[in-house]
């Protein structure tokens, strides 16, 4: 079994058997998406900001980065043959364990649930919220996942854009 570990801001997409994707979550959320027909799956790991607790990150900015993180994962899956209309999801994380960050975990979890609802993606397993860190293992080809609560301290970076450009591109053509 080949193992692929991802960290905050990353995603991995797999279309072959015998691969497990894993990550360690605190306030972050991991969406495990899979197309059961094409047998393509992928996981991301993202942290949004929290409006109010961090004035640099507004609600619309949060959604912007969250939607982009999901789009990167879905586009990568579609490039390997997944079809948007067949996607299913398992959602994990969003714990409120980091002191000083308020309910940032809940904000992340709410975003993930709302996104799946808006996009019409059926959600299978969810283990969101609470106060414990989680270790997630996902078999993308099979669409199966496992979530274990852990006591490890999860290193978390402050909320950052998935990709930096906010000004709209650096290739001057116009």
């Amino acid at each position: 079994m080949r193992r692929l570990a991802i960290v905050q801001g990353e995603h991995a997409v797999v279309a072959e058997p015998g691969v497990v994707v894993s990550t360690l979550l605190g306030s972050c959320v991991a969406a495990c998406l899979f197309d059961p027909v094409a047998r393509v799956g992928g996981m991301n790991h993202f942290l949004l900001g929290e409006p109010g607790a961090d004035q640099r990150v507004g609600a619309s900015e949060m959604a912007r980065y969250g939607v982009h993180a999901m789009e990167l994962l879905i586009n990568a899956m579609m490039q390997k043959g997944a079809v948007r209309g067949r996607l299913m999801a398992h959602l994990y994380g969003g714990a409120n364990i980091v002191s000083g960050l308020g309910s940032i975990g809940s904000s992340n979890a709410d975003f993930a649930r709302r996104f799946m609802e808006t996009e019409g993606i059926a959600v299978g397993h969810t283990d969101l919220g609470g106060t414990s860190a989680r270790k997630i293992e996902f078999l993308p080809h099979e669409g199966r996942s496992r979530c274990v609560k852990v006591t490890d301290r999860v290193p978390e970076r402050p909320p950052v854009p998935v990709h930096a450009p906010a000004s709209g591109g650096d290739l001057e053509l116009f």
Partner: peptide
């Protein structure tokens, strides 16, 4: 476009695109 799509932007320019915006973008951009 995505941030790594420079080749796409060049093709779009050749086809007559008026401008492009890289995701994720702020409303101001």
């Amino acid at each position: 476009t995505g941030s790594s799509d420079k080749e796409i932007v060049q093709k779009a320019a050749a086809l007559g695109v008026n401008n492009y915006v890289v995701k994720p973008f702020a409303p101001a951009a």
